[in-house]
Design a protein around this nucleic acid. Sequence first.
DNA 1: GTAGACCTTGACGTACGCGTCAGGGCCAGC
DNA 2: GCTGGCCCTGACGCGTACGTCAAGGTCTAC
Lengths: 154, 154
Amino acid sequence: MRIGELAERAGTTPRTLRYYESLGLLPPADRAGNGYRSYGEEHLRMLEQIRTLQEYGFGLEETRPFVECLRAGHPAGDTCAASLAVYRSKLAEIDAWVERLTAVRAEVAAQLLRAEREAGAEADAGVRPGAEPLCELTAALDGSGRHEEGTPPQ
Amino acid sequence: MRIGELAERAGTTPRTLRYYESLGLLPPADRAGNGYRSYGEEHLRMLEQIRTLQEYGFGLEETRPFVECLRAGHPAGDTCAASLAVYRSKLAEIDAWVERLTAVRAEVAAQLLRAEREAGAEADAGVRPGAEPLCELTAALDGSGRHEEGTPPQ
DNA sequence: GTAGACCTTGACGTACGCGTCAGGGCCAGC
DNA sequence: GCTGGCCCTGACGCGTACGTCAAGGTCTAC
């Protein structure tokens, strides 16, 4: 199987496979006479392992023990001790993030409440009836919940 | 106040202040006769606003409305509508992250349990008493809960 | 007058996971 | 033999928030 086919079957791109190989994450593929990379089914299995972990938010380096485990001949990539250790540390990491996010959420919610009250007071102190905004920014951007953000973890 | 003093009072570095200015996030400082930047207390207030939001995990661009609000003369940076909108979208973003992390956590925990069982079965299927590891990786890396990770959000 | 601490701009480095372009070779079908 | 689709390597680009180095000017104290 050539690189394009493997990439398609794994739902990724040739560029990505070459990148993994350059990292030493995937073992170097055999080469056909013309220099083209030649892959087997075991490569597909490794790739699927990597992609699954990636979807869970694992970094590429974190997937390495899983791939090594498969390369060592294990039927599954996650039954080696190193893989289990990565699972466990990922759980701890997620817990830490959730804890942090929860604390931040509470703090931001509190600030929002306070700011909303202050904004009301500020407006009342200004022009009473008519609701003239104090700065031109007040006109734009209201409504909540759209907006996109930089890469969320996981 | 010169750049070094402001940086120190804000708990940051001169490089950071020049960077903010280059982004147009901080207004360009006045210049002394020798070309040195000259800052006032209002710059300190803007910087403190930025730093606080940064600690909550806001990106620099997300702090912009708060700084603009201060620049517009408001006593607080978060009483303008644009700032409130950022607060609200940040809350939504945090909620989305927590949701995703919680789902991933459950999935990883399930995989860990399964893998632990399979690892046990694999070991039993091999050498019964003596527990010889199947791959040399099994020897290294056990124990859970240490390990550091790339920038957590927030 | 000179050492040392401050300031200036400009530019490259970092981590991550590739996308994309440049410049070329290989092979099948018409 | 020519077009089109695949493959190759090498190298730069992206986004984020600066750190760090280079090469120089400025000011204070001794």
